[in-house]
Simulated scan of single mutants.
Amino acid sequence: MAGSKQQLREDRAIRDAARALVKADMAHLKQDLSGKSLKDRMFGPVSEGAKDVLERAGEAADNNRGVLAALVGAVVLWFARNPIMELFSDEDEDDGSETESLSEQ
C-alpha cells in the first residue's frame, strides 16, 4: 500500500508540472496574440522582405544606370519588333505586287 501511495504522489507531481507548463504556454500564446492582429502576423515579415528587396533593387539601379537603360531599350525594341519589321516588309511587298500586276497586263 505504501508503494501505491508513493506512486500516486509522483504521478500527481508529474501532472502538476505538466499543467504548469501548459498554463505557461497558454499565457505566452495569449500575450503573443494580443499584441498583433492576424494580418500583421502573417504579412508583416512578407512586407518587410519586399521592402528590403525593393531597396536593394533601387540601389542596384542607381549603381548601374547604363545597364538598366540598355535593358529597357532592348525590351522596348523586342515588343516593337513586329511593327518595325512590317515597315520594312510592306515596302518589299508593295514593289513585288506592282511588278506582277504590270506584267500580267
Rank of each mutant, 00 (worst) to 15 (best):
A2W: 04
A2T: 06
A2Q: 02
G3I: 09
G3R: 12
Q6S: 08
Q6F: 02
Q7M: 04
Q7F: 01
L8T: 07
R9I: 01
D11W: 13
R12T: 04
A13Q: 04
A13T: 05
I14E: 01
A17G: 02
A17T: 02
R19I: 00
L21D: 02
L21V: 05
L21T: 07
V22T: 11
V22L: 06
K23M: 00
K23A: 01
K23S: 03
A24R: 03
A24L: 05
D25R: 02
M26E: 09
M26Q: 06
M26G: 03
A27N: 11
A27R: 14
H28R: 09
Q31M: 10
Q31R: 15
D32Q: 12
L33P: 00
G35R: 14
G35L: 14
S37V: 13
S37F: 09
L38Q: 05
K39T: 07
K39Y: 09
R41Q: 05
R41L: 05
F43W: 10
G44I: 10
G44L: 10
E48K: 09
E48N: 10
G49V: 11
G49Q: 13
K51S: 09
V53L: 07
V53E: 13
V53F: 11
V53G: 00
L54V: 12
L54G: 09
L54Y: 07
E55R: 05
E55T: 14
E55V: 13
R56F: 06
A57H: 06
A57C: 05
A60V: 09
A60S: 10
A60K: 12
D62C: 01
N63I: 00
N63T: 08
N64I: 07
N64C: 03
R65A: 07
R65M: 11
G66Y: 15
V67Y: 15
V67S: 09
L68H: 14
A69D: 13
A70M: 10
L71T: 14
V72K: 08
A74N: 05
V75P: 04
V75L: 12
V76H: 04
V76G: 00
V76N: 06
W78H: 11
W78D: 14
F79Y: 11
F79V: 09
R81Q: 08
E86C: 08
E86Y: 09
E86L: 14
L87W: 13
F88R: 15
D90T: 15
E91Y: 15
E91D: 15
E91N: 15
E91L: 15
E93S: 01
E93T: 03
D94T: 13
D95N: 08
D95S: 12
D95Q: 11
G96W: 04
G96T: 02
S97T: 14
E98Q: 03
E98Y: 02
E98F: 00
E98S: 04
T99F: 02
L102F: 12
L102E: 09
S103H: 12
Q105P: 12
